[in-house]
Design a binder for these strands. Structure first.
Lengths: 215, 215
DNA sequence: ATCGAACTGTACCGAGAGTCCACTTGACCG
DNA sequence: CGGTCAAGTGGACTCTCGGTACAGTTCGAT
């Protein structure tokens, strides 16, 4: 999200501008620490202009989270789609996908930018039922998505330990969210990708036939 | 932390009372969403009384995080100490420890209460360098602690995949932090323990000799 | 020309953080 | 018994921030 407007159209699209500025600030400092005044100044608009686009801060948060979820889903579609094209075997596709994900994060100059859902999770005053329900559905969506992928793998490979498919499905989002927290605190750029690679090793060991396994 | 005062001594210890009330609120709603007025009312003291004990909100946050880190370290000491008593083998001790941790969390009526470090990680306005440095040292401490345990395991068992010991050491805190985020969003009580059990399976597969392995 | 979407600017409100300070209360101490 | 000090009370005030209200402006499309 994303150019409805081509790079040609120089239309600033104030709403998007506000969201871009707000997202950056929110990921840096959190929702509550990000003041409307600060956004307004950075966007070179008036307070009235802000409230023209968003009825309150909650509406902004809602829009940010919605956009974030869409972007994340598009990213997963892209990465695991490409992985599947590279190797039709579901296990190998998963392993390739996780590696692609880790590599993509390593290429970002400052590591993973952070997750607005997690930012919201620890700051409840601001958020109404609607926002919380959106977050819930996003996390459940990722659980279902990865669960389905693991189910496919389990059709082909016998797992070496009993599977808890929901927990396994949650593990991708969980490991990423956790690693983001560590990264924020430690200030180390590669924390998230390193944790994803650990998860990859787990998946590999969980399904790979006991002895050999190349990729 | 903890009864410096025995259960007999009915001394209210206002400072501790404030911290207990604040911690509960912070874990529910976040630091910024927790107002001093609200704490003051719940503690039946005056605003002046609050500022007598903490020069500002930052000082309160600092005290909460400090106490949290100490408690968490004490918990790890206890759990992995007991695990080591039950089985002297470092791998088995680790597996038992992780299971004890998961079981302990399952016994809590509302799951893991949340982590004030993560709560701070996404709300930066409030915190000075001192708080951030404290958090950093805590996370690095846990990395070192678990890293050392994995190193001990690796002396006895040949890992089935190359080890990234720092990433492995971070994995315990990472998985827990991530699972807490999921738990907060989903409202499911067992998310954290389920994720810890996944981590346990990973450790088991990573070090266990290829074929047999009971526990 | 004119209409409406996208603003600007100002004035105002209430909540919450934080400061200052003068005053009280109760325990212990000599 | 009087003094002292930690642990408060309570009120007045300042500033920032979210949010409301609303009157007026700018500008592109029809």
């Amino acid at each position: 999200m994303d150019s409805r407007y081509s790079s040609m159209t120089v239309k600033p699209d104030t709403r998007t501008l506000i969201m871009d500025i707000a997202e950056k600030a929110v990921l840096e400092k959190g929702f509550e620490a990000t003041s409307i005044d600060e956004i307004v100044v950075a966007a070179h608009i008036s307070r009235g202009g802000f409230f023209y686009h968003f009825k309150d801060k909650n509406a902004l948060a809602r829009a940010l989270i919605e956009r974030y979820i869409d972007a994340e889903n598009a990213l997963f579609d892209d990465i695991f789609g490409r992985a599947r094209e590279l190797n039709d075997d579901p296990l190998h596709a998963m392993l390739i996908g996780l590696k692609l994900l880790a590599e993509m994060l390593d290429d970002l100059p400052n590591g993973h930018p952070g997750c607005v859902i997690a930012a919201a999770a620890y700051q409840d005053r601001l958020f109404d039922r609607g926002v919380r329900e959106m977050n819930r559905r996003a996390i459940l969506g990722w659980r279902a998505r990865f669960r389905a992928m693991f189910e496919e793998i389990a059709k082909v490979y016998t797992p070496r330990e009993p599977l808890d498919l929901n927990a396994l499905g949650d593990m991708v989002s969980g490991v990423v969210e956790g690693a983001i927290v560590l990264q924020r605190v430690l200030g180390e750029r590669q924390t998230v990708s390193a944790q994803i690679m650990q998860l990859r090793t787990y998946v590999k060991l969980l399904f790979a036939p006991p002895m050999q396994m190349d990729h």
